[in-house]
C-alpha cells in the first residue's frame, strides 16, 4: 500500500472576484479546534495574513462593484444569491469538513450547522424583492401627494465576521448586507477562517459579480482599525469584535464616527461584548441596519 503525501494548502484572499496573495506576502497557520484527545492542535492549512493595504484594495473593489450591484433588479439579486446556496449545497462535504475541524464539532452537528447556514442564505435571498414592501411604504400626508419611503443600500459595508460561528455566523452577517445592494469587505474569523475561504470559493463560482463580497483573512485587531477609519466605508458591522484578541470595539466605534459610519454593535453591553446566538431564525434588523431611506413626494392630482 502506498502512502500519499498530503497536499498542504495555502489559501489566498478574495478581492474583486480574484484570489490574490496578501500584498504583505504573509500567511499564518490555521489549526483545528482542540477536541480533547490531542494535546497539540492539528495543522489544517495556511491562510493569507491580510494587511491594511489588502483591506484598502478590498474597499476599492467593493466601491467599484457597488453601483452595478445596487442597480441590479431585486429579482435578479435574489436569483444570484439563491444560486450561491446551490453552489454551497454542491460543496457541502468541504463545508462540513472545514466547519467540523474549525469549530471542533461532531460530524452530525457540523452537518446541521452547514444545513442551517445554507437555509439562512436562502432565507435572506428570498427577502431581496420583499424587504422594500416591509421596510418602506406609502406615508399618509396632508396634501395631494403620494409620499413614498423606499429603502436604498448604504454603500460599502465593512463586516467583522463572528469569531466563533465560522460559517452560520458568517452567512448570518454577510447575506443581510449584500441582499439589499450593498457591497462588503469581510474580515474573516481570525482563528477559524477556512469556512470563509470556502464561502469565497462558492461566491467565485456562482453569479455574484466580483467585488460584491471581498474576504480578507488575518488578524482582526490589525486590520479592523483601518476599515473603521476608512472614509470610503459607509457602515461597519462590529459583530466580530466580540471575543477577538486585542480588539477595542469602542475604539473602532470612535474611528467610525469620523465619517458618520453606520455602526452595528456586537451583542451585550459595555466592554462585555458577546457574540450573538445565530441559531434561531433572525428578524430583519440586520438587513435594515444597512439601509438608507429615500422619501419621494409625487403629485397625486385629483
Amino acid at each position: 500500500m502506498s502512502t500519499r503525501v498530503d497536499v498542504r494548502k495555502t489559501y489566498k484572499l478574495y478581492i474583486g472576484g480574484a484570489f490574490p496573495r496578501s500584498e504583505s506576502g504573509r500567511s499564518y497557520e490555521v489549526l483545528a479546534a482542540p477536541t480533547g484527545r490531542r494535546s497539540t492542535p492539528r495543522f489544517l492549512a495556511n491562510a493569507a495574513q491580510g494587511s491594511r493595504k489588502d483591506a484598502r484594495d478590498a474597499v476599492v473593489a467593493a466601491r467599484k462593484a457597488q453601483p452595478g450591484w445596487a442597480s441590479a433588479t431585486a429579482y435578479n439579486r435574489g436569483q444570484v444569491l439563491y444560486r450561491v446556496a446551490e453552489v454551497m449545497e454542491g460543496r457541502r462535504a468541504q463545508l462540513v469538513s472545514d466547519v467540523r475541524d474549525s469549530e471542533g464539532l461532531t460530524a452530525a452537528r457540523a452537518e446541521a450547522v452547514v444545513s442551517a447556514a445554507i437555509d439562512r442564505w436562502v432565507w435572506y435571498a428570498g427577502w431581496s424583492d420583499k424587504y422594500a414592501q416591509v421596510l418602506g411604504g406609502l406615508n399618509p400626508v396632508a396634501g395631494p401627494y403620494f409620499d413614498i419611503s423606499a429603502p436604498e443600500p448604504t454603500g460599502v459595508v465593512a463586516v467583522l465576521a463572528p469569531q466563533a460561528s465560522s460559517l452560520l455566523g458568517l452567512v448570518s452577517v454577510l447575506a443581510p448586507v449584500i441582499v439589499s445592494g450593498n457591497t462588503c469587505v469581510v474580515l474573516a474569523s481570525q482563528a477559524r477562517p477556512l469556512p470563509a475561504v470556502d464561502l469565497a470559493e462558492c461566491l467565485a463560482t456562482s453569479d455574484v459579480p466580483g467585488g460584491v463580497v471581498n474576504v480578507v483573512t488575518g488578524r482582526t485587531a490589525e486590520v479592523a482599525p483601518w476599515l473603521a477609519s476608512h472614509r470610503d466605508v459607509n457602515a461597519i458591522d462590529l459583530t466580530g469584535a466580540a471575543d477577538a484578541d486585542g480588539v477595542d470595539w469602542g475604539g473602532l466605534e470612535l474611528a467610525a464616527a469620523e465619517n458618520l459610519k453606520r455602526v452595528l454593535r456586537p451583542g451585550g453591553t459595555g466592554a462585555t461584548a458577546v457574540e450573538p446566538d445565530f441559531g434561531p431564525t433572525p428578524d430583519l434588523s440586520r438587513l435594515s441596519a444597512f439601509l438608507e431611506t429615500k422619501t419621494v413626494w409625487h403629485p397625486k392630482g385629483r
Binding site: 484598502r56 474597499v59 466601491r63 477609519s229 472614509r231 470610503d232 474611528a255
Partner: peptide
Amino acid sequence: TGAYSGADY
C-alpha cells in the same frame, strides 16, 4: 489624517 480617504472627499 492617517485614515484612508474616499471619492466623497
